[in-house]
Nucleic acid binder design. Structure first.
Lengths: 191, 191
DNA sequence: ACGAATAAACAACACTTGTATGTTATCATT
DNA sequence: AATGATAACATACAAGTGTTGTTTATTCGT
């Protein structure tokens, strides 16, 4: 699998190649073992680059995780065309489903339940959900505190999605989403 | 300052002393430098205990941060008598104010803005807020999905509190709380 | 196509980490 | 007070970390 970083245009091809190698190796390792036990050395050996080169791109494995999650979740949103559409309750529902699936998939790879790893997913998912909601509500031009509503709603979405993910008897995403959607849209304009 | 861990009763006094020394040293170091740059060696040197003893109590610095934040935020809730009261909009307001102040205080110590550090605060604050809300709503016996409502509300509280904390022109806690309280209570019974 | 700019490789460094092992000191029970 | 249990100490080890130089290779602008 080829991973291309955020700004893939007008970037030194050496940099692009190296970062792609690193992220590839990293994702492969994540399938095999817990995040905490992955070392910079392992990553660079698998990526077949020099270890010191790693530090020219990321401060440490946490920085790499952050950047990687940002990239793949952004791709996920784009894939579902959510980044290019407008506000509607239907799209909020689609966002919730996307978030649920993303968390589920990310966790399923990581065998060792890792607190830091989960928190990093949460950070990226929530950040981008908030940006999306802000954009939607801004375009809507309704009379409300866009920022605060976007914050409240994005945190609610993540929280409920994470709850679903932890639930032992996990209903179908759509079923669960429809059940909790009123909680999510409580502060949103009614279409 | 003396830090006493969670279960302070019927615990080997050696363990209690050691953990107190560790947490003291850790909190002192947090006032001086960023979390990421604090090493186990530094902590144990300042606590005047053997480094290997550290690992008998915490897996690493992240584990220590987790346990420490859990303790001090629990104390904060107890201090405001929130753990022993019932559900009311007034108490939800008090909880929000407590969370805001706690985040503010925690961040102000940490000079280097540290992602991992913030995420850890978030984890503990949110977890305990949720537990508190669940207890309140359970006692209330109203007809609602207690778990989901508690999840949604606790995440909203943290999100809005964090937003206030990041705001450059930060209004008084009470002013801000009253402004966003409707967003927080949107899914709660009206007293 | 040539030369300046810069990324990647290479190598070495002082340091931290997590673990294992055996010894000493402290605590709880009788 | 004696004793069995166990926490803390002391020490050592292989491995990883982050940084700093220097050299080689690739890329970009003219």
């Amino acid at each position: 699998m080829m991973v291309i970083s955020a700004q893939e245009e007008k970037l030194d091809p050496r940099v692009r190649r190296t970062q792609a190698f690193i992220q590839e190796a990293f994702l492969a390792l994540l399938e095999e073992k817990g995040f905490q036990s992955i070392t910079v050395r392992e990553i660079t050996e698998r990526a077949e680059i020099n270890r010191s080169t790693f530090y020219a791109h990321y401060p440490d494995t946490y920085g790499l995780l952050d950047a990687t999650l940002q990239d793949i979740f952004r791709k996920e949103l784009e894939h579902n065309a959510l980044s290019v559409c407008h506000y509607s309750l239907e799209n909020v529902r689609a966002l919730m489903i996307t978030v649920c699936k993303f968390i589920r998939q990310s966790q399923s790879n990581c065998k060792t339940p890792d607190s830091q790893f989960e928190l990093m997913i949460e950070k990226q998912v929530r950040k981008q959900s908030q940006a999306l909601l802000e954009m939607w509500l801004e375009k809507l031009g309704a009379d409300l505190d866009v920022k605060s509503v976007a914050v409240a709603t994005s945190w609610t979405i993540y929280g409920l999605a994470a709850q679903w993910n932890q639930d032992s008897k996990r209903p179908a995403v759509e079923v669960y989403t429809d059940r909790v959607l009123p909680l999510i849209t409580a502060n949103l304009p009614g279409d």
